[in-house]
Design a protein around this nucleic acid. Structure first.
Length: 858
DNA sequence: CCAACCAGATTTTTT
DNA sequence: ATCTGGTTGG
């Protein structure tokens, strides 16, 4: 879904009158405004402390969003600020949408009047568009995504004769991103760092990349904030304007902010500057401190408010309220600085810190387990979550022989939970790495258990969407070389690399965009007749579309472009399994354009605002990574793969050492605290990674769970985890390490199993091992299945909710050798029927067992 | 210009 | 093991 709020649409609350004034007035007689009732004392404090900087440390499930939205309501109802004077930033569109929604519920239509509620990037982008000329851009600049960014860099590397094998463009993109995340413009990048790429050319490449962006009238995501920062620093008058406008600033998920976001916020919030000595921030940045510039300019503008006599004399606002949880900081690897939150009261002197520690989500055992785990971290502000809920069920820890048994066991437990009448929507499987998902998907497909994958490629990252957008971009801005290059030969028109290269040469020589180069080249005979003809058609088509733009609605125009270009046809002719999904996506794209005024408006916002809607509301198990689970909650949470190397991830440990370990631990904490009533942890002794089986040992995090709140259970996957096979080697069964307080029946049973051997076959350890080993080999014989299964993971076809079984139990309506179509596997032929379970030989995906409601007759 | 083959990588994700 | 992207051969 695409949503945006036009600033012009401010309605509902008249600006001159406090919002919800009626409520406030009505309630004043009694205990206070109605919206404050039901808040606990800390929450209420967080809402009512309006003056000065406030840091709300909101543990998981403590009502963070409620505090944020209520605080906004409070500010409005107290008449402290108008809706347009509140800056409220989130990280994701989803979070922004959620806040708008909840505000809407509290205040009626007033949300429409919150023009500055949005993501860092959308707001940063808005500000940048307003002052685009100060960044050598036009206000209609294009926002490049990662893909465009990399392609552009690749061109720069080629132009510089740099071997992009040895120095991949992706790597440079990562470096530049990292610099931008830290608020560094090309000239501010420390020389040592700039030199690491391509024998010292890194810094120069960053600079020429920025130059190219200006020529293309484009900005990347990082620029949306970085250019703002630069403008703020170089033009104190503009900064002051915003500082005066924003009477209140609210920040969600503060623990995820990076340095650039921090600087941006600091400039806007006009915190008093600290002395710019090299030691201001111990252990922060070793390099020349990028903040020093900010601090002086912040101080300058702050100390000279009278410089603009025309402006109302409003003091600098320091009313910034950041909400976050250091224990949920899991994005360090992409530039988030936990330090930002850890140092808050240092950066914003006089800050009031409020801790929300009452958890309204999880039962006692779950909360205790999560708290105990996170307590092993050192670098934290420290909170103690408490609940008034019952203890509930203990967190379970279950070992399995291998990852397949793990999936099987979880599948069975889910079916059991389902039989107890619980909703699949209340069940989630949270994995560390996405490759773990495949096993569960495979299992669920076999079981006919509806599931949905959350996360994965975003809607606007899909090839067909990006292609369609590229067409529109070229129409909108003939100078958009990247877009032109992307679609000049899509669908295939016989305009290959040679032609494009030629156009590039031409364009460079004359300093004109590729499109204009094409127009010129068509008039010459430099191209072979075939290519020349094609290219002439392309140019003519775009000219025609541009003319039509004046008289045609933008949605119709998009449809026309897709049809006339042959793009729709290209996918219609494509017989692959995901072609239908792609066409569906294209329709959705056109549909989504309706929400925008015109093509320009659509393109300006699309890259920032477009995300996948949460899909159908069909009852289904959710499958996602721990990262994408942040902010969500479920009654039942399954946490597979708690093994050393996988979780905590070896790579994180290698690259980031202790800090990495702590971040992984926070990830575990996030996982556990997603659960309302049941949290179930699993580990397997054997796991296949990159095709090879390897033996793993249980995660150290298991040892860090509090014995009193955890129960060790046996795998329900049909086989025991006991036996000397893998379990005997694990540190998890080391009583010393695990603590001696274990006395649960489960633990004792596990103990007994360990000594006796496998519980199911009752034989000696060795016997148990062999039994399992044969089990293992039979499962590995399904290897080919597996492999082909993944071939569809790529596809865009996963329209959520589509994989929902409609009925079960009836005899199949299919017959042998029926030609069928499956959303994930494509076309195939039925080779066996077993009740409602079909065995199908898929053309591409190989043979699979599938429940009949998942397929349709082809 | 296209298909078929081969080497390299392969956590996590937002905008 | 598998997916990607690039190179090679037709």
């Amino acid at each position: 879904m695409i949503r945006m709020t036009e600033p012009s649409k401010i309605t509902g609350v008249p600006d001159h009158q406090p919002a919800a004034g009626g409520i406030a007035a009505r309630a004043r007689a009694s205990v206070g405004p109605k919206y404050l009732t039901g808040l606990n004392p800390e929450q209420r404090d967080a809402v009512e402390t309006l003056d000065g900087p406030v840091l709300v440390l909101a543990g998981a499930g403590t009502g963070k969003t409620r505090v944020l939205t209520t605080r906004i309501a409070h500010i409005l109802s107290q008449g402290r600020a108008r809706p347009s004077e509140i800056l409220s930033v989130t990280f994701t569109n989803k979070a922004a949408r959620e806040m708008k929604h909840r505000l809407g519920q509290m205040l009626g239509q007033a949300v429409e009047g919150m023009p500055w509620l949005g993501t860092f990037h959308s707001i940063g982008g808005r500000i940048l568009r307003t002052h685009a000329e100060l960044a050598q851009l036009k206000s209609n600049f294009t926002v490049l995504d990662t893909d465009d960014q990399v392609r552009l860099l690749k061109q720069l590397l080629q132009a510089d004769n740099i071997d992009d094998k040895r120095w991949p463009a992706r790597m440079l993109a990562g470096l530049i991103d990292g610099w931008k995340n830290r608020g560094l413009t090309p000239s501010q990048v420390p020389a040592g760092e700039a030199a690491v790429f391509a024998n010292g050319k890194g810094g120069k490449l960053y600079a020429s990349y920025q130059e190219r962006l200006k020529i293309l009238n484009a900005a990347d995501f990082g620029d949306l904030l970085l250019e703002d920062i630069r403008i703020f620093r170089e033009h104190p008058d503009i900064l002051r304007q915003y500082q005066q406008r924003f009477k209140y600033i609210l920040v969600d998920e503060y623990q995820d902010t990076n340095v650039a976001q921090y600087l941006w916020l600091r400039l806007l919030s006009q915190a008093p500057a600290k002395p710019a000595s090299p030691t201001v921030i111990p252990g922060r940045l070793e390099e020349p401190n990028p903040e020093s510039g900010d601090e002086s300019s912040a101080r300058d503008s702050g100390s000279a408010p009278s410089a603009h006599p025309g402006m109302t004399a409003v003091g600098p606002t320091k009313n910034i309220c950041c909400v976050g949880d250091d224990d949920q900081s899991i994005y360090g690897w992409r530039g988030a600085e936990v330090d930002n939150i850890l140092r808050f009261d240092h950066d914003f002197p006089g800050a009031k810190v409020i801790r929300l520690e009452r958890n309204y989500r999880s039962t006692g055992h779950i909360l205790a387990a999560a708290s105990h785990l996170i307590a092993h971290n050192e670098g934290r502000l420290g909170k103690t979550l408490r609940t008034e809920d019952q203890d509930g069920e203990k967190v379970t820890v279950t070992g399995s022989w291998d990852s397949e048994e793990e999936a099987r066991g979880i599948g069975e437990e889910i079916e059991q939970i389902q039989r107890q009448g619980e909703k699949l929507n209340e069940i989630a499987i949270l994995v560390r790495a996405s490759y773990q998902m495949r096993e569960f998907e495979d299992r669920f497909v076999t079981l006919g258990l509806p599931y949905r994958v959350i996360g994965g490629p975003r809607f606007y990252e899909r090839a067909e969407i990006r292609d369609a957008l590229a067409y529109l971009r070229v129409i909108n801005s003939p100078a958009d070389d990247l877009a032109f290059e992307r679609i000049v030969n899509v669908p295939k028109r016989g305009l290959g690399d040679a032609t494009v290269q030629m156009l590039h040469d031409h364009a460079r020589k004359r300093r004109i965009p590729l499109f204009e180069a094409a127009r010129a080249v068509v008039e010459t005979d430099e191209l072979k007749p075939k290519a020349r003809g094609s290219l002439r058609d392309v140019v003519a088509q775009f000219d025609r579309w541009r003319a039509q733009r004046e008289v045609t609605a933008h949605t119709d125009l998009a449809q026309i472009v897709l049809d006339e270009s042959g793009y729709t046809e290209m996918w219609q002719k494509d017989r692959s399994a995901d072609a239908a999904g792609r066409l569906e996506n294209l329709k959705e794209l056109v549909r989504s354009m309706e929400e925008f005024e015109n093509l320009q408006g659509f393109l300006e916002h699309i890259s920032l605002v477009m995300d996948r809607d949460s899909g159908a509301d069909e009852d289904a198990v959710s499958l996602m990574t721990l990262h994408s689970a942040k902010g969500l909650e479920f009654d039942n949470v399954f946490l597979p793969g708690w093994e050393e190397g996988l979780f905590p991830s070896q790579r994180t440990l290698d690259e980031q050492g202790r800090a990495g370990l702590e971040e992984e631990r926070r990830l575990g904490h996030v996982g556990l605290t997603r659960a309302r009533r049941r949290a179930k942890i699993y580990f397997a002794t054997n796991r296949r990674i990159h095709g090879t089986w390897s033996t793993t040992i249980p995660s150290r995090f298991l040892d860090e769970l509090p014995a009193a709140n955890v129960e060790i259970t046996e795998s329900k996957g049909g086989s025991a985890w006991g036996g000397t096979g893998g379990y005997g080697a694990s540190r998890f069964d080391d009583m010393e390490a695990f603590g001696s307080t274990y006395s649960t029946p489960g633990w004792q049973r596990a103990q007994a199993n360990r000594n006796k051997g496998g519980s199911r076959n009752g034989g000696g350890g060795r016997g148990g091992f062999e039994e399992e080993a044969s089990n293992f080999s039979s499962s590995s014989s399904s290897g080919p299945d597996f492999g082909s299964f993944s071939s569809r993971r790529r596809g865009p076809l996963t329209i959520e909710g589509e994989l929902v079984a409609k009925s079960t139990g009836t005899t199949s309506e299919f017959s042998l050798s029926d030609r069928v179509f499956h959303q994930k596997f494509g076309y195939g032929r039925v080779t066996r029927i077993d009740g409602n379970k079909l065995t199908i030989a898929f053309d591409k995906a190989g043979e699979k067992k599938v429940v009949d409601s998942f397929v349709q007759r082809a």
